[in-house]
Nucleic acid binder design. Structure first.
Lengths: 179, 179
DNA sequence: TTGAAAGTGGGTTTTGAGCCCAATAAGATG
DNA sequence: CATCTTATTGGGCTCAAAACCCACTTTCAA
């Protein structure tokens, strides 16, 4: 047991983020089960939010215990922008302090992302190679979390740890920002 | 038993705050029961005060033992202000860093807040994931407290502690009124 | 070519949220 | 003080969605 109830209601808040990105700010937290074939049924609205007009979705390894889902076209656009920026910076010799960013980008580019498609009932098959990363055995539970610009699939334990780490900081940040 | 009498008299004072925000200043405190299905009946005036023109309400995790209810539009306005700050931060920062910030913000927002709707008889269902945070078992009691711009739902023990610690003078006043 | 393992689709069961009504308790009124 | 009215709570019913399960298809290797 991880302390989460078997089911969570979720919701999507539509916020105006005046960025190039999607016009919806994906939110919601939900617990779901992985079936014996490593499939997860997403809330249908979330599934829709990470599917582009061609029905394509990108799954990426975020960190150990966490995968994320993106609209494919969004993802590619972001990647292109990132690559462009980094290349120009490298050319300008301004990357001395940014090698970790380059590294991260490189990792994401190579083995860390893959195109998947969300099947019939908003059901997604976690591809081979991503399963161990999520570290949830078949039949186990995961947390589905809306992270504004993407959806994250969390190992429940890793999720709780992240919350423990980030939540206090968020509290003061939130107070400053919002109140 | 938590030391409260079986019922508390309550009142809602409607003060006209000459401010742009909500026209009512929500006040009052009531003891209410959570039933086995995690439903709470709010005083109808309070329920009305935290429901916006579209019938929407936001529930948030405030601190352990305390949830709060907001008019959805009011809440979103606050959030928009926060998002504005983030946006300006983003414009000044590095690309990869900015997106992970948005991700983290969205992720934490997802855990902390959720849209709920207050049903027929001013009765609200505490969503799963918020129940354990309130830390009241099914069938237990909670304190409903008007906090000006929102309503707070308190674990009775946490409420007493808060009164004792943060507002000793109010605590004695409370004792006088209630016992 | 065949068998095993993995991927896919869909029917069935179960759970829980929404809705409604009834019973009861509290407050108001005469 | 009796009665009436309203507010609160408990619970039954229904419907939708998630979990479970099974069958069919595909792939890959022996």
């Amino acid at each position: 047991m991880n302390g989460f109830p078997p089911k969570l209601v979720w919701s999507c808040l539509y916020l105006r983020l005046e960025m190039s990105a999607p016009e919806t700010f994906i939110q919601g937290e939900v617990k779901r089960a992985i079936d014996d074939r490593f499939r997860i049924t997403l809330p249908s609205e979330m599934a829709q939010a990470v599917t582009d007009e061609f029905g394509q979705t990108i799954i990426t390894k975020e960190r150990y215990g966490c995968l994320s889902l993106w609209q494919a076209d969004e993802w590619r656009a972001r990647l292109d922008r990132g690559v462009g920026v980094i290349r120009s910076k490298i050319e300008a010799g301004a990357m001395e302090q940014r090698w970790s960013d380059v590294q991260r980008m490189g990792r994401l580019l190579s083995t860390r992302s893959r195109e998947v498609q969300i099947a019939n009932r908003s059901r997604i098959l976690i591809p081979e190679g991503f399963r161990e990363f999520l570290d949830v055995s078949a039949g186990g539970d995961v947390m589905i979390v809306g992270a504004g610009i993407c959806i994250e699939i969390w190992n429940p334990t890793a999720w709780l740890e992240t919350l423990r780490e980030d939540m206090p900081e968020f509290g003061s940040m939130f107070k400053e920002l919002v109140v």
